[in-house]
Amino acid sequence: MNKDELTEEEKALLEEFDSLLADLDKTANDFEKEAGDLISKINNSIDVQESRLDKLENDLISFEEENKDKIDSLAIKSLIGK
């Protein structure tokens, strides 16, 4: 059936439906964009924190290795006088 043959009420219903669909589409797009932005921001920040922890751990590992004897002696020996 042709759209022109429809009554005003019927036309209005069809238009309402189309506009609701457009709204739904817009909302979904907005959601996708906002959530996507937030997710990528959070993930990037987590990456930064992880690399920061990597650096800290590596620093401490080398510190431990370099000062192995010093740390060990501090642990107990210097107190009990050995």
Partner: peptide
């Protein structure tokens, strides 16, 4: 990591 310095 840190097991050694942990003794401090």
């Amino acid at each position: 990591v840190g097991s050694r310095i942990g003794v401090l």
